[in-house]
């Protein structure tokens, strides 16, 4: 039996479920790297339904499915927009769930994945719904922390746009399940909304300079230009939230830097060569995590 039928929100999983998936992902790593071939999901078909573009998420699901011997059908954002004019999401899901064994849905409206699950005969995996949930991102973030640092007893700083970043919001909720100290670093206008702070312990607003020498993980997110009324203001703020190798001289030796990508210029390319840079590994870890999720909802047995 699967631990869950659909994967809609990280909040639907308890700590045990999360650790189970992370552990399962670990067993898929050599398949994810192409070192071992697998036919575990042979004959199974994944449908990517992307109502807004997200090349990375779509590709890594595609890779995960194909590395496990399964097949993929895609509906692009372009096709989706022409469908959206004539058909409800409910109907699209009902039809596609007749074609495929599992559906990955990316949709601009919040709650779309939960609604899709109500209309689907097959598992729905939420690939991001508006400003809402993106649980596979959260799981791959946790996996990266587990692999490259530790999930227990660490200090992590979340930096950048903490107000609008759904990646950050879900990660904070998940991290509270573990014994983690969280520092929040952001411009005043992009602070974490109060409602997220309600009832959270071990969370503190900080400046990067004050904590850089004690943190184990630095999670950087993009500050989007659209959030600022004028260009000048944006440049000023963005400039002061930039990581370069100079700053890292003060860091702990085993500090890891993460970023959901794509980056603009929050992290200087000179950082890429340092042992701290883990954002490309983080992107890779999305593959074994998505394999673990696919095999879980499709009830695959590790061959």
């Amino acid at each position: 039996m699967s631990r869950f039928k659909h994967l809609i929100s990280i909040d639907d999983l308890d700590k045990e479920d999360i650790l189970f998936i992370l552990k399962k992902a670990e067993s898929f790593e050599s398949i994810a790297r192409g070192e071992i071939n697998s036919k575990m999901l042979e004959g199974k078909i994944l449908a990517n339904l992307f109502f807004e573009p997200s090349t990375r998420t779509r590709m890594s699901f595609e890779v995960a499915m194909k590395r496990l011997g399964g097949d993929v059908i895609n509906m692009t954002a372009q096709e989706a927009s022409s469908i959206a004019k004539g058909e409800t999401l409910a109907d699209t899901i009902k039809v596609v769930s007749k074609y495929a064994d599992v559906i990955v849905l990316r949709h601009p409206l919040e709650g779309a994945a939960r609604f899709a699950a109500e209309n689907s005969e097959v598992p729905i995996i939420n690939g991001g719904d508006g400003a809402g949930q993106h649980p596979t991102q959260t799981l791959l973030d946790l996996y990266t922390i587990m692999k490259e640092s530790s999930l227990d007893g660490i200090k992590i700083a979340l930096m950048g746009d903490l107000k609008y970043s759904r990646t950050v919001h879900s990660l904070i909720r998940a991290l509270t399940l573990f014994n983690t100290k969280i520092y929040l670093i952001s411009p005043d206008t992009l602070r974490l909304p109060e409602e997220f702070l309600e009832g959270l312990k071990n969370v503190e607003i900080a400046e990067l300079d004050d904590v850089i020498n004690e943190i184990d993980v630095l999670y950087v997110t993009r500050i989007q230009k659209e959030r600022f009324p004028d260009e000048e203001e944006y440049k000023k703020v963005a400039g002061s939230y930039k990581i370069d190798s100079e700053l890292l001289k003060k860091a702990k030796e085993n500090l890891i830097i993460m970023h959901p990508l794509p980056r603009i210029d929050e992290i200087d390319v000179s950082v890429d060569k340092t042992r701290h840079a883990k954002y490309f590994d983080q992107a890779f870890y999305g593959v074994p995590i998505r394999m673990a999720i696919l095999s879980e909802v499709l009830n695959g047995v590790i061959a």
Binding site: E110, G111, R114, F115, G130, G132
Partner: peptide, 26 residues
């Protein structure tokens, strides 16, 4: 949205009545 959907809220009492959207969690 225009989907065939009825709003659904989880509700509880915390000094006052609080409702949370089942779909978007607002």
């Amino acid at each position: 949205s225009d989907e065939p959907i009825t709003s659904k809220f989880r509700v509880w009492f915390d000094k006052n009545v609080v409702a949370q959207c089942y779909y978007c969690r607002r």
